[in-house]
Design a protein around this nucleic acid. Sequence first.
RNA 1: CGGGGCGUAGCGCAGCCUGGUAGCGCAUCUGCUUUGGGAGCAGAGGGCCGGAGGUUCGAAUCCUCUCGCCCCGACCA
Length: 567
Amino acid sequence: MRYSKLFLHTLKETPADAELISHKFMLRSGMIRKLASGLYSYLPTGLRSIHKVMAIVREEMNAIDAQEVMLPMVQPAELWQESGRWDLYGKELLRLKDRHDKSFCLGPTHEEVITDIVRGFVRSYRELPVYLYQIHTKFRDEIRPRFGLMRSREFIMKDGYSFHVNDEDLDRTYQATYGAYNRIFERCGLDFRPVEADTGSIGGHASHEFMVMADAGEDAIACCTACSYAANVELAPCPLPDTASPATPEPLQEVPTPGKSSVEEVAAFLGKGPAQVLKTLIYMGEKGPVVALIRGDYSINEVKLQRHLGIDELRMATDEEVAAITGAPVGFAGPIGLRGSYTLAADHSVTTLQNFVAGANTFEKHLTGINWNRDLPLPATTDIRIITENDPCPKCGNPVEIRRGIEVGHVFKLGTKYSKALNACFTDDKGMEHPMIMGCYGIGIGRTVAACIEQNHDGNGIVFPVPVAPFSCLITLINPRDAQMTQTAEGIYNGLLRQGLDVLLDDRDERPGVKFKDADLIGIPVRIVVGKGAKDGMVEMSLRKNNEKLTVPVSSCIETTLRLLKS
RNA sequence: CGGGGCGUAGCGCAGCCUGGUAGCGCAUCUGCUUUGGGAGCAGAGGGCCGGAGGUUCGAAUCCUCUCGCCCCGACCA
């Protein structure tokens, strides 16, 4: 490709609304352009990178015998009503009507459609397993799209679905996909790790997320500092703490705490640490109010709390709802003297509290010197807290660290959730009918490119790894009006093309500085500069990632390029 | 949906408080010079000041409503 013919428009200045490095550089390097909130156009160089990732995904998916299909984006409401998700999915599901006033939605995911296809054809255990995937556009009407391709409303996803006669067969495909995902993200040059994950609203049992490690990530991951354990903090279990040695009981007292309502304020005011305070949080669940108790220096894990309560809807109570339960304004809730009916959930961490502080359920009053059993019974406790730095690893007991990650892939064992709802059944060798066992597997294609940029950039721009780069090598022709230089550059260009390489020839009539700045910004891995040395048969070569320059004869330029691309 | 902020040339912004000819930098176009890290000079084009109402002799500026965008939160295969 000749730069003079390429539709590529780089920006000197960063658009003001870009926040993340990857978002800024994708806009500045002309890979994408925003159309509206959460909607992006992929421009030629951006699409090239997308296509490179897609090609890797296809190769690895085909290698594990998954077959590619393409399913409609617009899907009939009936199918979603049949699975029950028409009502459950909420506002992320963009609903629309056709000219006959029939209801449709834009597919945020394709379990319903794929299950409908498979149930229509597959009758016998002999026809299973079936493993289909597609690479296509999804639409989710996100509450708050942000960070460019990292969280957009319309996005490209590889989604795969497998159908099995039993759990063992599903497990084989799950493991094969797990392996394929590892190879895909390795080939993309990413620093990532698979982590145990929550199954979320899609349902199912086992689940792993593939997380690219990056400070900009929206997910927090608990990683063991000693073993290979890694889990989304939403899921990572927190064990029952060791019992503390008994302290001398203090008297129960009500003390004024004027203007102090947060755990930190109250603890500081009373000269204690947050770990000596019992935090009492009021939630509203679908079955009524929930009072959650936890040690003051910890946070409630709402995912765990929901699971413990067996409910799908949970939110913080409003000020009025809090007042109804505690009889006091927000900030003075405690476990003693609550009124009305509510469900109590206590975290394991409260068991070790002695002589602790809690709200008195009275305006600007707290209780001190509270002790379990003397002042109130110790409730049954469960694990409803968020794991924190230095908590013990659930596998080996060594401390965990909390790291940030970008979720680029997710594998689920779905079980029979959709096959039951949509009646996708097969007949076994005994003539008995069973719902198919399903798995589903996703990769965010655009997000993978964005994550790649998060991990590979410097102050001047993107530093693409070869497999994801829009072009693998760039020839910078310093002066296109110089016949010698032009001839040399053209010769190398044609030679590299004959090698089947993605090569970009910067033949623009621009000053060298402009070309160098653009080259760094768009991040092509190998650069060949044809300049002053051309008259002596020499060119200058360098790698974007380290910028070390070497002068090589034109005759060995192609060979050197091939060698550098492998390094 | 709650809180905050912003809409002025393709991009980045000033002007608004205190109403009176719509500006700056970059980009674009023309010419000359320049050619190894975002060139210099000279000239030119480009605006419903997000939209609709209102106040006023007069509105980018003041008021009301609306639409869009961004940030924080809640939410999220």
